[in-house]
């Protein structure tokens, strides 16, 4: 982990126009949470619905897409990654530094707002808030890794990432049971389900994979993804624009 690389990545992620989206999304989540609380009162069910669809299903994947691809994509795009790669830095260190920053962004703009929204809507008696926050965190870690790797592999990382997060996970994952086993959302949901405990099934929190499988897959994807990212950085090609 290299502090300079991390600092530069942080500034490029948060100090730009893309930061507007970073602020808007959690703001909307919190506003909705407040509204639900005001209108419907404290409700675990409403919390589960909103957090499941808005947070885990939209905010976290898109935030990770923006942060994960944004941590390295623009640099590869305009070729300035060359300056970084010309330094005697371990490629894995570069990968991890950027990954840490992306994660930081995700935690600040995704996980913490999820936690807050959960508390706002469901209070602290059920473990809903912490459960979803944990799910968001783990999903965020896995998504960030996958999208960072995608950004290193291809110029079309954003489109492919979108196709995965939206089409695969939401649409196909909803209809094809086998596909659900390959969905980061489901793995994270397994953890949430466990943390929420007994109320989970009543609230409709049900993952298609078991806890053990979910956690294992999350860990495997994260570690392998990071390792492969570092590996690919060693031989990255900076071509022309297409």
């Amino acid at each position: 982990m290299n502090a300079t690389v991390a600092g530069l990545t942080w500034h490029s992620l948060v100090g730009r126009r893309r930061a507007v989206l970073l602020f808007v999304l959690p703001a909307v989540l919190l506003a909705l949470a407040l509204l639900v609380r005001l209108v419907s009162g404290q409700s675990a069910g409403a919390a589960a619905d909103l957090l499941g669809s808005f947070s885990l299903g939209f905010l976290i994947p898109l935030l990770c897409l923006i942060a994960g691809t944004g941590a390295i994509g623009p640099e590869i795009d305009d070729g300035s990654i060359v300056y970084l790669l010309a330094k005697p830095l371990n490629r894995y260190v570069i990968a991890v530094s950027k990954w840490v920053v992306a994660l930081g962004v995700i935690v600040i703009f995704g996980v913490l707002p999820t936690l807050a929204a959960g508390f706002i809507m469901a209070g602290s008696d059920s473990n809903l808030a912490t459960g979803y926050a944990a799910g968001a965190l783990l999903a965020g870690i896995a998504y960030a890794t996958v999208f960072l790797l995608l950004a290193v592999l291809t110029r079309n990382a954003v489109v492919i990432g979108l196709l995965y997060a939206l089409v695969w996970e939401a649409a196909i994952g909803g209809y094809v049971p086998g596909a659900q086993a390959l969905s980061i959302q489901q793995w994270a949901l397994a953890v949430t389900q466990k943390m929420v405990g007994d109320q989970a099934s009543g609230l409709g929190i049900e993952s298609a994979v078991g806890l053990g499988a979910g956690v294992t897959l999350l860990v495997v994807v994260t570690v392998a993804g990071l390792a492969y990212t570092g590996y690919r950085l060693r031989s990255i090609r900076i071509n022309g624009d297409e």
């Binding site: 909307v28 691809t69 994509g73």
Partner: peptide, 25 residues
């Protein structure tokens, strides 16, 4: 281009979700 793609999708999805939540509420 990449950011444009993400921005369009994010905005449209956001509007869909917000509108859906508020409507259901």
């Amino acid at each position: 281009r990449g950011f444009g793609v993400a921005a369009v999708i994010t905005v449209l999805l956001l509007l869909t979700l917000v509108s859906g939540v508020l409507s259901a509420l």
